[in-house]
Amino acid sequence: MSSQPLEAVLEFPIEDASEETFHCFSQKIPSNNLGFLDSKTDVLEIEVAGCDYTIIQSTGLLNSRREEGTTGAVLWKITPLVAAWLASAPPLLAEVLHQNAIVVELGCGVAGLIGLVLARFVQCYILTDLDYILKHVKENIIANAAALENNKKATKRRSGQKGTAADHVLRMLPLDWECDYAQNLETVLPAGSPIDLILLCDCVYNEYLVGALVQTCADACRLGSSRIKPTVVLIAQQLRVDTVFELFLDSLMKEFNVWRVPDAHISAELRPGSGYAVHLAMLKCADGN
């Protein structure tokens, strides 16, 4: 566990979105196609951090012409890699990822895999996406109920909780970045608890959603603005279109200080040359610093 504050470990934030984009995309990027793990099967069996999970996908939804979009209908390659890295308890994130942590994921997709994995490590994990996506997430929580119960059994005994682990740890909230208010998160947050970590995993793909996504992140972070320790945003992204990525970074940097996660603090599967990029962000102070 790092004895230094997170900002001290990360040192200087990124100053230029264009330069950072060039750095990320100048690496040799392997072909991941669109980034689906397997878009042709309705059920995936996957192991992450020593535990087995059954993931129910919606191939029908993926191939539909739904106006709201279908990108969350199946599991993306980057998701189990991020889940495994976070489950390893990276020292860099010790301040925001721990037994009492409150984590919010924006755009969790039908799998909800990161939430399923981290349910055994945190106090509360809030899965958010569009309402029709969350109906599928609920199916995956039910499909993995036994694994969740086994993972949290010891914690429940110590705390005297009743009911299922999913009832206490995993919570869901419909959240449309364009239409809904981030303040709605307060309806599912444990009373009086600020958000420790906000997670975006492969959410940057549509230039028209960039502004709404960044605003949602900023508003969610401000729910805990009175606390001394700021909410941390983790962005893990497959590198696809450099112009969209640069637009996102540029928009993000107007509200946040942003750092690329140093190689020494991240798993080998997510380092430069993997085709993925991982960044951390924290809201700027009122004076812009």
Rank of each mutant, 00 (worst) to 15 (best):
L6P: 04
A8Q: 14
V9G: 05
F12S: 14
E15I: 08
A17L: 04
T21N: 01
T21S: 04
C24G: 01
F25W: 08
F25L: 03
F36H: 15
C51Q: 14
S58V: 07
P80F: 15
A83F: 11
P91F: 12
L92I: 03
V96D: 06
G107L: 04
I114K: 01
V117G: 00
I126H: 11
L127K: 04
L127I: 05
L134A: 07
I141C: 01
N150T: 04
N150I: 11
T155V: 12
T155S: 13
T155I: 10
G160D: 09
A166W: 04
R171P: 02
E178V: 06
A182M: 05
Q183L: 11
E186R: 15
T187W: 00
L189G: 01
P190E: 11
P194C: 07
I195P: 07
L197C: 02
Y208W: 12
L209K: 09
V210E: 02
T216Q: 11
T216Y: 00
A218E: 15
L234M: 10
Q237M: 06
E246K: 13
D250F: 11
N257H: 12
V258G: 05
R260C: 06
A268P: 01
A268H: 13
G273V: 13
S274R: 09
S274T: 08
A277W: 00
C285P: 03
A286I: 07
